[in-house]
């Protein structure tokens, strides 16, 4: 499919840094016009052929889109919800023909697995967890970790890992030791299948051993931000590197609030230090609203309605994509299957870009 449009980085003239570009490769138009909340790419198998499909979530409808030709997508399946709206799609690696969604109003009340009936192809739903859920993450090897329940902290909080059996049916449940603080987000520790990282409402990180369920360490980070989101974590040379964001941060006068930050922690001593702050180029307004990190690329929607991309290795912003067709961007997701970026607008339209 030949690119329909090219949007290059709008960096200040004279900036010597390398710029990236976004090429629009296709668009998913939402005829209903209802509010779009999330998008994801997942694998779907039919007649022995496994292909990447796009899953979109509007308020009460989740849709599966398949390729009909290189530029055309067709909606082939929908799941509808009568009472509780969809908050997010939960991608789970290594899983196909299954979509996981979190439903709720202000906070997650249910996690459901969506599939198709093998008899007539009709929609099927399976309730995986109900009650207040504060954090959820899909993990490699068909696992889904979530936390919530009770008042959220202390012994009321339950942290559980569900391992999904092949097919939509059986599942195995395991509990992890809960920290005393409410867990806000989870992040897998790349390259360490048995380790899991979490951020807490008390501005700390916690590490679990997923095999034993042990809570290994609580590490406080030295910054003043609240509600830290961890997007990516990896261990190198005995140290823990975490890419995080602060969606609730207020802009400071001196240097603005960074969209993303790289923090290094020694898990043995719990001492930490800030390594890198990923800020907007000078003169650009807006602060982080929501974002996604894949490999060494971070994408964010800013309060200005613009999408920004950072190369975490180079340390700077490579693309600024302003609102398209006078519609602010509302969310961005990296495709888990290739180097594509999916950007959504509130009117339900999704744009698929190739990032280079």
């Amino acid at each position: 499919c030949s690119p329909q449009q090219t949007e290059t980085a709008d960096l200040p003239v004279g900036n010597s840094l390398d710029a990236g570009s976004l090429q629009l490769v296709s668009q998913l138009k939402n005829p209903s016009g209802s509010c779009s909340v999330d998008v994801s790419v997942m694998w779907w198998e039919e007649a022995g052929l496994r292909e990447p499909c796009v899953v979109t979530a509007c308020e009460y409808v989740v849709s599966l889109w398949k390729h009909v030709d290189p530029c055309q997508w067709e909606k082939t399946q929908t799941w509808t919800f009568a009472e509780v709206p969809v908050l997010q799609i939960v991608p789970v690696p290594d899983v196909y023909n299954l979509v996981f969604v979190a439903l709720g109003n202000l906070e997650i009340r249910e996690i459901r697995a969506l599939s198709c009936s093998s008899d007539d192809g009709g929609e099927k739903q399976q309730l995986l967890r109900s009650g207040t859920v504060r954090a959820v993450l899909g993990l490699p090897r068909r696992r889904l970790v979530s936390s919530g329940g009770g008042g959220g902290a202390g012994c009321d909080q339950q942290v559980e890992v569900v391992t999904l059996a092949e097919g939509a049916g059986g599942k195995e449940k395991q509990f992890l030791m809960s920290p005393e603080e409410t867990i806000l987000t989870f992040a897998e520790l790349q390259g360490m299948q048995e380790a899991l990282l979490g951020s807490t409402a008390g501005n700390s990180f916690v590490i679990w051993n997923l095999k034993t369920g042990q809570l290994l360490k609580k590490m406080s980070i030295d910054n003043s931000y609240q509600a830290t989101v961890c997007h990516k974590a990896y261990s190198e040379m005995g140290l823990l590197f975490v890419v995080l964001s602060h969606p609730c941060a207020k802009q400071t006068e001196s240097w603005g609030s960074p969209a993303f930050e790289l923090v290094v922690i020694n898990p043995k001593t719990t001492l930490s230090a800030g390594m890198m702050r990923y800020c907007l180029p000078p003169g650009q307004a807006g602060r982080f609203l929501e974002g996604d990190v894949k490999d060494h690329f971070a994408a964010a929607v800013l309060t200005s309605g613009t999408v920004a991309i950072w190369d975490l290795l180079l340390g700077h912003c490579t693309v600024l994509a302003p609102p398209s067709s006078n519609q602010s961007w509302s969310f961005v997701k990296w495709s888990g299957t290739d180097s594509h970026l999916l950007a959504g607008q509130k009117d339900g339209n999704i744009f698929i870009y190739r990032y280079s």
């Binding site: 380790a195 140290l239 020694n266």
Partner: peptide, 23 residues
């Protein structure tokens, strides 16, 4: 940042913390 500011580093931190943490 200076690595020395983070204290002694262990390459086997995950195994060591797992053996020290309560079961």
């Amino acid at each position: 940042c200076n690595k020395a500011d983070l204290g002694p580093i262990s390459l086997n931190w995950f195994e060591e913390l797992s053996s020290e943490a309560p079961p």
